[in-house]
């Protein structure tokens, strides 16, 4: 009988160590406080270009992870990428929140950045984020930069920049421009966000299907 008790003791110890190892893996190696078990709600966003965004990429707002990308699809009608993502139910976002695809570091992984707006109405599960900004594609930037350089080399009167002011600017300036228009849009959105957003989306859709 005594022998058996020793055996039980050892088996108990083994099970404790095993469960302890599992707990270690769960709590120390994998941050168990991420959203795999938490209730979430799903939103959708449409982008012209998602770059190399992947399923399970983080969704961040103000740099804090608030969710994960759950699915990426392609809309054959508008030729846009449809990104679905889960957000922890703890974090409601207003209806005029904008989504951008950003890059961690210079060449790091891409993630979905959410910038909250000021609307009083919050997103419900299944809603679509209207304000989106596509990923920055490095090749396009470089192409633009080269075009720029070539334009600078020409004499001032032959500059084609007047015809198309956006083209003549450097990438940084252009980005600033985009930001300005973005914030302007966000401001005007606070009044009639859904209506306007819907309109631009509809216009875009029509453009795409033509």
């Amino acid at each position: 009988m005594n022998r058996n008790r020793m055996l039980d003791l050892w088996v108990g110890l083994f099970v404790i160590i095993g469960i302890g190892a599992l707990a270690f893996l769960a709590l120390r190696a994998a941050n168990a406080s991420n959203f795999s078990s938490e209730p979430t709600y799903t939103l959708e966003a449409r982008f012209d270009n998602i770059g190399s965004l992947k399923v399970r990429a983080p969704v961040r707002s103000a740099g804090v992870m608030v969710g994960r990308v759950s699915a990426i699809g392609f809309d054959a009608e508008t030729y846009e990428a449809v990104v679905s993502f889960n957000i922890s139910a703890r974090y409601p976002f207003p209806k005029d929140t904008s989504a951008k695809i950003l890059t961690a570091g210079l060449l790091g992984e891409q993630y979905l950045g959410l910038t909250a707006g000021g609307d009083a109405v919050m997103f419900k599960a299944g809603d679509t984020v209207r304000l989106t900004q596509s990923a920055v594609v490095l090749e396009n930037l470089i192409g633009q930069f080269l075009y720029n350089k070539a334009a600078e080399g020409k004499p001032a009167d032959a500059k084609p920049a007047d015809a198309n002011p956006g083209e003549g600017k450097s990438a940084g300036e252009k980005a600033d421009d985009a930001k300005v228009t973005d914030s302007k849009a966000a401001e005007s959105k606070t009044t009639d966000s859904t209506a306007k957003g819907g309109k631009t989306r509809a216009a875009k859709g029509a453009e795409g299907s033509q």
């Binding site: 599992l22 893996l25 769960a26 190696a29 994998a30 941050n31 168990a32 795999s36 078990s37």
Partner: peptide, 19 residues
Amino acid sequence: YWSQMQAAVDFRDDVLNGV
């Protein structure tokens, strides 16, 4: 070491699948 690990290892997708 720990924070990079925690950011990349998912409990359900990695640990549970390993189990």
